[in-house]
Amino acid sequence: MSANEINILETPILTVSDSITLRPSELDDAEIYLQMVADNHDRLSEWLSAPMPPTTVEERRKAQAADLARGEDGKGHWWLIEEDGDLAGTIAFHNIEATNRLAMVGYWLADGFTGKGIMTDSLHAIIDWAFSELNLIRIEIQCSITNRASCAIPERLGIQREAIRRQSEIKKGVVLDMASYAALADNWPPKPPAR
């Protein structure tokens, strides 16, 4: 391995805590994944385009197969989050860029699992893994500035906001200003900024 190259690895099972496990998303998860999207559709569709609208199991399998193929090329990793064996949400690296050694993160939780620190701990775990095992140097998280619960996740980890990308997304006809956060390998976990 060269110091400036990323590693292409299988998506691992990551143990986040005694109760939380990230397991690689598989083809046969299509049905439970769709059910989780349907159960949370109204809340999620304000912020996300990826799992919307709910599709058939067959279409979901196809999308999942495409994701898995991208994963084999080292372009992304997709996990399901389980709390004590119950499906709680998803977290993923998509758009891993080998040249710039960066990745973008996407995540969402099902109703009933929010507000317990599950996503904060999950995000911490996948960033740890990406810096130490994939050899990435930069991990980006973007969320609408009006989605406080989502922005609070990188903020609780001390990840700096670099920019607000004005009006850069449109969801359900609503124009969103996107806060853009980046975790950097040379400052991880982040030290507080110098005074």
Binding site: R101, I137, E162, A163, I164, S180
Partner: peptide, 10 residues
């Protein structure tokens, strides 16, 4: 000007 991407280019 919206911000700075640290280590954003290679």
């Amino acid at each position: 000007h919206e911000g700075t991407m640290h280590d954003g280019g290679y």
